[in-house]
């Protein structure tokens, strides 16, 4: 058992901050097993990111820089990770369970016939060396405790924001090894034609604060302009843009939504929180005009502090909330935005 590997996810040549959480979780396992914590960094800027990994607790780093790694494709990443695992038999391979992290670790666990447990929210190394994790299942209604076989490499994807990064130490250095890629461009079946980045929006799963709007966004007291194709949709969209977004902006928060709001075309699907949307667990979740259906709860119930703003005092969301404000969101949200601007000095 040579090491604990942590895949450092990158985007446009920069490490995702959540990757440092994975190094935090990896440290627990590496310390218990008495093996080094190794950052795995492929692609653009890998050497610089490996150096950053050292500051975040990695003892070693394995890097590979090659044009085939730019813009993440599963095949070259999985081929190299699987080779490293087969050659070096690490005790564990960890990554944050982003789309890419899930894909890569699942693929590599299959290639190497290894144990794979996804969406871990806590972990513990047992006396026999096996890693036991807890993970939410059935939309968070139940907790499952699962354990990997200690004989081989254990692959784990971690839920974002569930583990703490190691304290940063700018002086700490990781010992870097460079390896060549396994696949050449000609061996790769996929080709990225274009990528259209969605800029300016805070990523829901990384956000420390989320402000969400529901079907009630349509109850905007403003009148839709005569030319609007659909007055209801216009009012709701205006509400998201000019009532909810300003609150999110003072808080540095991401904007979420219920499925009712998404299905009605008030806001794109990428914002949906819930069982068939994103599962989030921010420090603060502010639900505005959301009733709190079980499928919505599935996506946000692990938020640390939940605030509900709803005109119906009987809405189920109040059963989950820490603070409840009964009233019209179109009055309360602007008042809250103004108050926060004042108090946070913005």
């Amino acid at each position: 058992m040579s090491a604990v590997y942590v895949w450092i996810e990158t985007f446009n040549g920069k490490a995702l901050n959540s990757s440092w959480e994975a190094l935090g979780a990896g440290k627990t396992i590496a310390a218990a097993a008495g093996v080094p914590l190794t950052a795995i960094v492929f692609g653009e800027n890998a050497a610089a990111i490996a150096a950053e990994s050292g500051a975040h607790g990695a003892d070693k780093a394995i890097v590979s820089e090659d044009a085939t790694f730019n813009g993440f494709r599963l095949e070259p990443y999985a081929a190299l990770l699987s080779k490293l695992v087969s050659d070096n038999k690490p005790k564990a391979v960890l990554a944050i369970g982003t789309a890419r992290g899930r894909e890569l670790l699942s693929a590599s666990a299959a290639d190497t016939d290894s144990s794979l447990i996804t969406e871990a929210t806590s972990l513990e190394v047992q006396a026999d060396g096996a890693i036991k994790v807890t993970r939410p299942v059935y939309a968070g209604k139940i907790i499952s405790e699962a354990v990997g076989s200690s004989a081989g490499t254990q692959f784990l994807t971690l839920r974002g924001r569930a583990f703490k990064p190691n304290p940063e130490n700018a002086a700490a250095k990781a010992e870097v090894t460079t390896v060549p890629p396994v696949l050449a461009e000609a061996d790769i079946a996929t080709k990225i034609e274009s990528f259209e980045e969605e800029v300016g929006t805070v990523n829901l799963t990384d956000a420390a604060i989320i402000v969400s709007g529901g079907r009630a966004m349509a109850n905007n007291p403003k009148d839709a302009p005569a030319g609007a194709a659909d007055a209801t949709v216009w009012k709701a969209q205006d509400g998201f843009d000019n009532t909810l977004k300003p609150l999110a902006d003072v808080l540095g928060a991401a904007v979420g939504a219920s499925r009712a709001a998404v299905d009605a075309g008030y806001i794109p699907y990428a914002h949906q929180v819930g069982q068939t949307g994103k599962v989030v667990s921010p420090d603060l979740y502010i639900a505005c005009g959301i009733s709190g259906a079980i499928q919505h709860q599935a996506g946000m119930r692990t938020s640390k502090v939940i605030v509900a703003i709803n005109k119906d005092a009987e809405a189920p969301i109040f059963k989950l909330a820490r603070y409840g404000l009964v009233g019209d969101l179109y009055q309360i949200v602007p008042a809250l935005t103004a108050e926060l601007k004042k108090r946070l000095g913005k």
């Binding site: 985007f11 813009g71 982003t98 996929t190 034609e193 990528f195 259209e196 969605e198 990523n203």
Partner: peptide, 9 residues
């Protein structure tokens, strides 16, 4: 997560 990708395979 960061946007839309067009890919051929």
């Amino acid at each position: 997560e960061q946007g839309k990708q067009i890919v051929t395979s």
